[in-house]
Amino acid sequence: MCLNKVRVAVNGYGVIGKRVADAVALQEDMALAGVADVVHDYRLQVAAQRGFAIHAATFEAEGTMRAAGLPLAGNLAELLAKADVVVDCTPKKVAAINKEVYAAAGVKSIFHGGESHALTGHSFVAQANYASAIGRESTRVVSCNTTSIVRTLGALRTAGLLKRARGTLIRRASDPWEAHAEGIINTLVPEKAIPSHQGPDARTVIPDLDVVTIAVKASHNSSHLHTWWVELTRPATRDEVLAAFRAAPRIAFVRSSDGLVALNSTVELMADLGRPRGDMWEVALWEDVLAVDGDQAYYTYQVFNQAIVIPETIDAIRALGGIESDPSASIARTDAALGLRHDFIHDRD
């Protein structure tokens, strides 16, 4: 490591990779060694404008990237030689091959939810299991939906309120930038398996979580929506449940009474707040929709799939890099650098 900063490489400069690179660049204890990819489209052209060191991820891609005028700083091997940790943001299943490359280069590696838990033997959400990732050679930051499940159910669990949970996920059909190529129009597609994969995936982070999820894919691409029924360990008040969410990191309240009545209105709010790319890193939980009846709680929240895992990835870098042993300190540092909030309109911070 150089000057007490962990040097970070980002392999794959797409939806997640470009956001990870931006977030790394904002951290005082990290240095972006560079980014790698195999394409030469507008995303890499923008990376060049930002002054990021661009590398060809494969030998085959190097020629076309140079021919397109990209100022290449080298290849993937040269990028890894300058890094302590690499964040793999390549397409699903490509990372399994890359892991051997990273290990051979002696670089610690972070993967994302498209890969299986078995790839690393460790799955990560900062508030739940940061300590177990410290010093590891690799970890997997779980998917956007699984991250939200661990954040919210983890908050109730920490407060001693969670017995079991059952959730329904209304999933977006595609990422916005891919809407021209794929998607669902004027219909819903139920996932074939119950539980859907998010519940079992959450147990890779919190093994004793009693959770079942059902998912459908809908004809929109702004974000995901979750609705949850939770059986509490005892009768509780609505204020107690709200306090549990309020005490947890990376959960922010929204209210229908403020005009935030749908997914698109919250997405519009992020733009109005000046968020880069309109990103929402928090779980947006509707405070005025949440209801509690004895030992039963019901709530709804929104998951912005393009950005929610970014703060978790930054914390995973610190854990693997061994530069911060206190989970709360890392979370606070990440959230301050990115500008996370606990309430989008009436922030008490």
Rank of each mutant, 00 (worst) to 15 (best):
C2P: 06
G12R: 00
V15F: 07
I16P: 06
V24L: 06
L32Y: 11
H40C: 10
H40K: 02
Y42P: 01
L44H: 07
L44V: 11
Q45L: 13
A48L: 06
Q49P: 03
R50E: 15
E60C: 00
A61H: 03
L70I: 07
K82E: 15
V85W: 12
T90L: 04
K92T: 14
K92S: 14
A104M: 09
A105H: 14
V107C: 14
S109Y: 15
S109E: 15
H112W: 13
H112C: 14
G114H: 11
E115N: 11
Q127A: 12
A128F: 06
Y130M: 04
S132H: 11
T147G: 09
L153D: 09
R164M: 08
G167Y: 10
T168I: 11
I170F: 15
S174R: 02
E178Y: 11
H180G: 11
I184E: 12
T187G: 13
P190L: 05
P190T: 03
P195T: 02
H197D: 13
V205G: 04
V212H: 09
H220R: 08
S223M: 15
T227R: 14
R234C: 06
P235N: 04
D239T: 03
A243G: 03
A248I: 08
V254G: 03
D258V: 01
G259E: 09
V261A: 11
L269Q: 05
V283Y: 03
W286M: 00
A291S: 07
Q306L: 14
A307N: 08
I310P: 12
A316H: 08
A316D: 09
R318T: 05
R318G: 09
A329L: 12
A332V: 02
T334C: 14
D343A: 00
D347F: 05
